[in-house]
Design a binder for these strands. Structure first.
Lengths: 202, 202
DNA sequence: GCCTCAGCTTAACACTGTTAAGTGGTGGAG
DNA sequence: CTCCACCACTTAACAGTGTTAAGCTGAGGC
């Protein structure tokens, strides 16, 4: 560990982050399935096997990028929450930022929120299993709670929170999946989707 | 064409539909990437090459199934519209059915509405390029239009229609992607998402 | 009986993720 | 200075993928 760091730092850059940077770029440009370990290896100028010395397999490499996505989203949410506003305004802000960040970084969004990793990665590693992902979800939920009457049941809070998230996610995933469709003015769309979801809260 | 039909009908079943049936089942069970042409071939008792005599490649096979999905959804929508109701009730019905059908047939939904086929299938074959998919979309849009004031602008109609669709799609895709997450009572969730989206229409 | 031809198969190509085994050079010990 | 250990890295291979060129086979028409 320490020896590795010294050896590599003296040269240029930890190989692990070099791999991650290249992978992020390639995945974002071509998509997960289109990037082979060999291609990734040649773009960084190493043999394929070298990657396997830093990541168990292609999935783990992919999950490292997922982790980063969750971290970014969570940080954005925390920043919004740190600036005190009315709960509804904060919630709208969060959702708006969520959608905006997703559209700015479509591949990160896909990786973090649109891939049923359980299907191919047996040991479950979705947002629901990731601490950062879960924290993110809980932040939104507790913000929704603050928008609701104090005597609301847990079930109502859960359902309302999930409804609001579903609306925001629906918009983002549609725009990310079909970017060329005639969606109309995106800003208006964002506003309408988020407002109608949040304003529907009793 | 005709000779093929006679030859095969005399035996049992057109090979093409036999392939489609097997593929639909396998894709639904294991997912697109997990089903190889060889596996598909062995389950129907033929050599892999035989499949290529009926479908240009794996993508085309996949797109045939997509087509079926759109057909099913469109038919359901048409049936709802044929029973005359208030536009808002019809719209809610349509969205509710849309979500329900998606949850009942997750893999068909994924195939039809969650895969950015443009990314891997160059000659564009998403719902936006598919006549049935487009018709489906237009049916919903015209139903939304009927829910709005008669003097609404085209842009408003477009945005409102897309907002409503985003909400329904968001819920469906979330439940399909993360079926094991604690979503709360699904029926309630469906109702809340759809009602708040539709009732937000001015 | 022979020819045609459709339906199907065999065998191969170029790729994929992944790993066992090996290489080469640098750092430290004697 | 020599030798050894170790570690970053590579080569070569395995088993699997989508796909296709070429060949087989057996039934129908002349």
């Amino acid at each position: 560990m320490t020896t590795q760091a010294t050896t590599l730092d003296s040269h240029q850059l930890p190989l692990k982050t070099l791999i991650l940077n290249a992978a992020r770029k390639l995945f974002a440009e071509h998509g997960y399935a289109q990037v082979s370990m060999r291609k990734l290896a040649t773009t960084i100028g190493y043999s394929p096997t070298t990657i396997y010395h830093h990541f168990k397999d292609k999935k783990e490499l992919f999950l490292c990028l997922t982790e980063e996505t969750y971290r970014d989203f969570l940080q954005a949410i925390n920043e919004i929450l740190s600036v005190s506003k009315s709960p509804k305004d904060a919630l709208k802000d969060i959702l708006y930022t969520f959608v905006t960040m997703g559209l700015e970084n479509p591949n990160a969004y896909r990786v973090g929120f649109m891939m049923e990793t359980d299907m191919w990665i047996k040991d479950g590693s979705n947002f629901e299993h990731n601490p950062l992902g879960k924290t993110m979800y809980d932040r939104i939920k507790s913000c929704v709670k603050k928008c609701m009457p104090p005597n609301s049941s847990d079930e109502d809070i859960l359902v309302t929170s999930n409804s609001v998230i579903a609306a925001a996610h629906g918009l983002t995933s549609l725009l990310v999946t079909y970017p060329n469709f005639e969606w109309g003015p995106v800003a208006k769309l964002k506003k309408q989707v988020i407002d109608s979801a949040v304003d529907a809260i009793v």
